[in-house]
């Protein structure tokens, strides 16, 4: 087998893994969009917020320590205990539910019935607010996150591919775990929305707000639930990305990466988010591999957007999205 082909295969595999992570973020968007028609730009910052909260709780940091110290001249930073990962994850989830409630109560409830673009801008504002709060709460330095997920090269794949192709593929264990978790998450979400009472109520709300109201579904409750679920997805994405590249501001930019994924897959489709994520992941890695060296590299920054842009011109609703019909 020629070397180039083997390299390309490795690139594709890695691209698939990266695509899974993009899809994970995109899922959060799709959930909120389907249930409330809000395009939640703050999803990435929610992932950052979740990851920072998780690290903070695990290390026993005092929230708002910097602010308290600056105001009262004290020097507190840590409570002095370490929380086990599982408990910390549960506590973080509680924080995310609280956040979901606050967002619903103080922001989205007042904006019901506004144009989608106004809601979108409100979530940009929310993203700024949340980022500031996260930094104030836990400090803005880069943190490492370790909840016990395996990391490093997968030796089994390395060896077995070496035996077949004469060249060992480099696949990160973390990516494999992420793929498994993403698959589980999607399965769980699908099961939730198909087979539980709340999940069905959520789909009803997505279908028609007024009809859902008239059969006795509480919109407020559903929206808090949807934001909580999105918070949960953000937490999972935050753990994955945080373990991979440290908890830092750039984490919130993965939200932007999820946008082209959504445009490819369609805003309203969960399978679309997955397929879109995979296409973007593989596409950008392959493009970087094949064309990148010719044009100076780092094409990953824009390839996804340009691909989505070109795609949109031909099929505005995405691969799996509902057809947009406009009437006067």
């Amino acid at each position: 087998m020629p070397d180039q082909l083997v390299f390309a295969m490795e690139v594709i595999l890695n691209g698939l893994m990266a695509g899974v992570l993009y899809a994970l973020v995109a899922l959060g968007f799709v959930l909120i969009y389907k249930a409330s028609g809000i395009f939640n730009y703050a999803q990435g910052v929610m992932a950052l917020f979740a990851a920072m909260t998780l690290v903070g709780i695990m290390k026993g940091q005092v929230p708002f320590a910097h602010l308290i110290n600056a105001t009262f001249g004290t020097h507190i930073h840590y409570f002095g205990w370490n929380v086990p990962a599982l408990l910390a994850i549960i506590l973080t989830m509680a924080v995310m539910v609280l956040l979901a409630w606050a967002v619903q109560r103080f922001v989205m409830r007042h904006l019901v019935g506004q144009e989608p673009i106004i809601l979108f801008m409100a979530t940009i504002g929310l993203a700024y607010l949340l980022e500031g709060v996260a930094d104030l709460m836990w400090g803005s330095e880069i943190k490492t996150l370790d909840v016990g997920l395996p990391q490093g090269i997968n030796l089994w794949i390395d060896e077995s591919t070496f035996n077949i192709f004469g060249y060992g593929f480099f696949i990160d264990n973390l990516d494999i775990v992420a793929t498994v978790i993403a698959a589980l998450l999607v399965a769980a979400l699908v099961a939730f929305s198909q087979y539980t009472k709340q999940g069905r109520a959520m789909r009803a709300v997505a279908d028609d707000h007024q009809a859902a109201l008239s059969v006795g579904i509480s919109l407020n409750f559903i929206w808090v639930m949807v934001w909580s679920v999105a918070g949960f997805v953000a937490l999972v994405a935050g753990i994955m990305w945080g373990t991979k590249s440290g908890v830092q501001f750039s984490l919130s930019l993965i939200a932007l990466k999820a946008l082209p994924v959504l445009m490819l897959g369609g805003f309203t489709s969960i399978p679309g988010a997955i397929v879109g994520g995979l296409i973007i992941g593989v596409g950008e890695k392959l493009f970087e591999f094949a064309i990148g060296p010719m044009v100076g590299g780092a094409t990953e920054n824009w390839f996804a957007y340009v691909l989505a842009l070109i795609f949109l011109v031909f099929r505005p609703q995405g691969l799996f999205g509902e057809k947009i019909i406009e009437r006067v």
């Binding site: 922001v107 904006l111 801008m121 409100a122 940009i124 504002g125 700024y128 607010l129 709060v133």
Partner: peptide
């Protein structure tokens, strides 16, 4: 950041 974000939301509402 907090103030700018908060103001954006406040103004929109």
């Amino acid at each position: 950041l907090v103030i700018v974000g908060g103001l954006i939301i406040m103004f929109l509402i």
